[in-house]
Amino acid sequence: MFDVVVDIVLLTFLATTSVAIMRMTNLFAIVMLFGIFSLLSAGLFVVMDAPDVAFTEAAVGAGISTVLMLTTLALVKRSKAPYYDEAPKIHTAWLPLIVVIVTGSALIYGTWDIPNFGSADAPSQTHVARFYLENSLPDTGVPNTVTAVLASYRGFDTLGEVTVIFTAAVAVMLLIGGKRPKSAPKTEDEEAQDEA
């Protein structure tokens, strides 16, 4: 019962945050609010019994993606103006609003077919899940079922995913990594660090 209260409060926070993100023009503040957004959704995942997803959300959503977005902001930095524009022109964006409303109602319509949260006769509980829950520990020796499925039962699939991500990372590093621009002179303590 209390879970529901926490769910509702966290969802309210989540909605508030997303509205605030939309209305904000300072990119830096938006990135920080994305961090809150990730933390909140990870909190929701914990409450809804999905610690693995929460783990990923915490590490990737709140951690790495914040760092990546901040790095991007630093790379595209403007020389003078702070990271916000003039106040946006007040106009009502009717087309996007309609698109969003239609998509949203289609998604809500789609949820009607989904079995209730945690219901025992949902397909995900009755089909193969039981097999993996019972056999993954003796088969693989890994205590975490999700890890066992990812790294062992569908190991080739995961290998493919990792290859794709690795290729993407290498490509990105080739494109933007490279040499540092020489125009920015090193500050003294950076030089000291280099020497150390």
């Binding site: 300072n26 830096f28 503040a29 990135v31 920080m32 961090g35 933390l39 990870a42 914990v46 610690p51 929460a54 783990f55 915490a58 590490a59 709140a62 951690g63 914040t66 760092v67 901040l70 790095t71 902001l73 630093a74 930095k77 020389s79 702070p82 990271y83 916000y84």
Partner: peptide, 30 residues
């Protein structure tokens, strides 16, 4: 465990933000 990861990630996020504020010509109080 998740709380543990958060405690670290949260810190990393804040330090990354500040690193940028400090080094990236990022004097952006609104």
């Amino acid at each position: 465990d998740i709380a543990l990861v958060y405690a670290l990630i949260n810190f990393i996020g804040v330090v990354a933000a500040l690193k940028l504020v400090e080094h990236g010509n990022f004097h952006t109080s609104d």
